[in-house]
Design a binder for these strands. Structure first.
Lengths: 199, 199, 199, 199
DNA sequence: CATGAATGAGTGTTCATTCAT
DNA sequence: TATGAATGAACACTCATTCAT
């Protein structure tokens, strides 16, 4: 009988804790969230949290790790949804997927890319998938350059500029929710299209 | 009574408090700054701060107001530094000035546009200058469309897209200071140039 | 109107706190005494203690400082109670006073000389009077040697040996209160007399 | 079931626990050691310790018992190392052995004779060997008096005074490690010699 | 205007301990 | 025998805030 059947195994509880913490961290800010608040949200005593995580920081780290993994997965999926040869489509899809990730997981995006919550030691574990995400974008940029879809020859310049553009639209939409934006999809598309076009 | 009339009038003290708070907010983060820390920095007792500001939020509001004013001033200056007829140059200059403001005042930019620290009631007073800043960009976009430098006809679409791009590069550079960016000015220029080009 | 008249001026409160802490530290051990317990004993809220002392350690430091001062004063008094020329009497009186200090202030003696509660930084302030106490003993030992009452010529050897003896009887009487000691004064006297005699 | 019979019987585990606790008590102080820390050191879960010891106090009692036994053994050895007739040598040897025990086991000496960690109920079991130690000293004192090496006739007075002297030097050396002591052996010898001489 | 005294709530975290397994 | 889950009490300390002066 594997431990799956128990009803509340360790990973379940850990996930519940991280989920609760994610919402709280975003709504109230990491420093304004207490272990007691997290515990209350999951229905445990505050001290019991320490049976699953060493401290508050460790909850955050798990959260970031999960977020980066989900983020990278989203980009990969978008890339693989198109023919390997069709770099143009792939690049566009990845850029769209990036923004889409932010729009559909504003909590994660905020903590990962806007608040950039990383203690020095977090980087080691978590940055990995973040960097992989950027590398994926970078490699596609180089391919696009090689295939002539982009005139600019410096792949780093291209990929960093593209990142700036998609991060810009994503973070603005998340941060200024009540701003009178024009129709969202149209705006996103225009940023990406004119960005690609102009290079 | 010379002292009373000169050295310690109310606005002087309020300014001293805001100045101290500004530094602390930026160095340690808004949530990690307590009234007592601010008080200690200005050399007053903690309780005395309450004679000038109701609470931390009120200090922040003053700070934001100042920041937005400085922000708007920067954009205006850039615009006025060029011939009124040369919309192309003006638009480019304003975009550059936006990023420049962020780079040279990362503290303000962070609070104004990244953290977006605004209580509901702040908007009434403070948003004014922020909105004026965006309108300035919007008007120039419209002029540029009218003069044919930009093909896209929807001025809102253009201005919001441009904002996304410049906010993107500005906030990334501020937030991910240790990322291996290519040469900063080159990157900024490329984002703006290809953005304008693509529209 | 000097601040004396107020009823509860600052020094009064500080003393009350230190007094309460002294008893608690001794009875329950420094680490088992909480700020709450101290506060409860003086009738204040726990947090108010922090208006008078930076932290728990600082209370202890004040306590040690007071204790060492009282200790030194006791030795000096004993010395000055006898003719300056009569070194023999002075030395004996000081040795007796040392033990007497321990017997009448077992709490202080325990914290100062048995538990030896000194953080690294405490020493700077507090050790001063402790050292002066030992120097007083040392100087008298040298005088006694010079006047021929003690045959051993090494004053350091003499003073440290004497200290060992009086500390021995003092600390034993304090630490093992329920041991079947013979009559206390007789024992103390015998230790001191045979110690002096044997040198 | 070989494992059950050999590797993990109760006394083995108990000893492992006491050993771990001993080190911790001495390094970090009794009050700063928690059951979980002890458990961590032996590699068991915290709760499991409760299967072997009711609480921390019970662990301490075992430790004290061991310490007293070792102490008594040291004194006996010293006594038996000399001719039974040579009381003078025996007494001196025992006094030296006492100090030597303290110097070489400062951890034990501290818990047994300085901190005197004994709950009321411990005495019944543990004091036994401590008392035997004192009796050994007492008997030798009486013998010395009978043989004329010591003039004072009250054996209790003599033995308690001697104990005071050797406890004094031992505890001072342990407690004030950083005091500028003169050469240790010379000091110890002088305390014992002049003590014996003076009686 | 400015202060010190005072407090209750809250912080992250540790602890001893119980309970079901 | 041994464990992990869970808890309530406690810790030193910080905080915003009130009050009398």
């Amino acid at each position: 009988m594997p431990e799956q059947n128990k009803g509340t195994n360790e990973s379940d509880v850990k996930r519940k804790i991280v989920d609760a913490a994610t919402q709280l961290f975003l709504n109230e800010g990491y420093e304004n969230v207490s272990m007691r608040k997290i515990a209350a949200k999951v229905g445990y005593s505050a001290t019991n949290i320490y049976n699953y995580f060493e401290n508050k920081q460790e909850i955050l780290e798990q959260l970031l790790k999960d977020g980066y993994a989900l983020f990278l997965e989203s980009l990969k999926e978008a890339k693989n949804a198109h023919n390997q040869q069709d770099v143009k489509q792939q690049l566009r899809a990845v850029l769209m997927a990036y923004v889409h990730f932010g729009i559909t997981h504003p909590d994660y995006y905020h903590l990962l890319f806007i608040k950039n919550m990383e203690g020095p030691e977090t980087i080691v574990f978590a940055e990995s998938d973040k960097v992989k995400g950027f590398l994926l974008l970078h490699d596609l940029s180089r391919d696009a350059i090689n295939q002539g879809f982009i005139k600019e020859k410096d792949a780093l310049l291209v990929s960093q500029s593209l990142w700036a553009m998609i991060h810009g639209i994503t973070s603005l939409l998340i941060t200024f929710k009540s701003f009178p934006w024009i129709e969202q999809q149209k705006l996103i598309k225009h940023v990406i299209d004119s960005g690609l076009e102009g290079m």
